[in-house]
Amino acid sequence: MGASQPPSSSSSPPSSPPDVSSSPSQPPQPSSSPSPPSSDSQPPLPRFLKNDPARTGYDPSLTWWMNYFKIITGQVTREGVEHYREDRYRANEERDCARCEADRAYLFQYSPVIRFLREKVTALNGTLDEENVVCRRCPARIFEDGRVVRQGGGFSPDHGILICANEMRDRSHLEDTLAHEMVHAWDHLRWKVDWHGGGNLKHAACTEIRASMLSGECRWTRETMTRGNWTLTQQFQNCVRMRAIQSVMARPACRDDVHATKVVNEVWDSCFTDKRPFEEIYR
């Protein structure tokens, strides 16, 4: 990926990232399967559930509308609904990816925040374009305990930015997701983050705080109109903190929500006030 290349040796050396140690965590994984634990001390990863019509009520051999009727009449379990959704995503993959690619092209040309971040990445000798910002269908992870984990996108220093076309509600949602991942790309270039460092989650926490803060995904209208959160005090801060904690929890090196919260709190003051490459938060 172009954006994964560090600045050339002729550029001035970057300053250290705010309040983080020199051993960052692993980057978000754009694949549908989590990375293996970094050490033997990590708990075993849960298995992903496969559909069993006898258990879930969802029968893929039936037409989609017959299964839909079963869903609205309560004959399909929550797990079965998720398997049905995954099958519909597979059926509509070509349509979803084509729409995602058209919106991506529009945003690269007309979105102020995307154009700004693209210019800043270019200034660090990186490249983000249709070759390494790709639209793909992203399978969900359905765990044995009933949890369903979905992702809107991901950044990999070796491959680029992944946009999960099947999870994008509209162009505005894609703009927020793309901006989030572009902040990760800028951070990677600016500070030469060692994404494959062992066990230290401070870098991950810091870049997740900054990405949620600067991308616009926590702006008031998104929180109220899309997520139904009408809290009037500390809403923006709470959204950024919550999303950063959730992202850190998804890292293999994170033990649990308590661990993730502790790491986010440790870097919060310095990372939440760091608006680079912007001057102000305007989304």
Rank of each mutant, 00 (worst) to 15 (best):
K50I: 06
R88T: 11
I72D: 00
V81S: 05
P112A: 09
T127I: 13
G126Y: 01
D103L: 01
P53I: 07
D87I: 09
E93H: 08
Y89D: 15
S111H: 10
D52I: 07
K50G: 10
S61K: 14
C135K: 00
G57K: 01
D103R: 02
D129M: 02
Y84P: 02
N67F: 06
S61C: 07
D129T: 04
Y68R: 13
T56M: 06
T127Q: 10
E86A: 11
V76S: 01
V76N: 03
Y110A: 13
R90P: 03
W65N: 14
L62E: 08
L49I: 12
F108L: 07
V81G: 10
L128V: 15
E86G: 08
A105S: 09
F108R: 09
D87F: 12
T63A: 11
L128P: 06
G74T: 08
Q75G: 13
A54W: 05
K120N: 08
Y84L: 08
A123V: 14
N51H: 07
T77W: 03
A54F: 10
F108H: 14
I114F: 01
I114S: 00
T56H: 05
L117A: 07
V81L: 09
P112H: 09
L124A: 05
G80W: 01
K120L: 02
E119H: 11
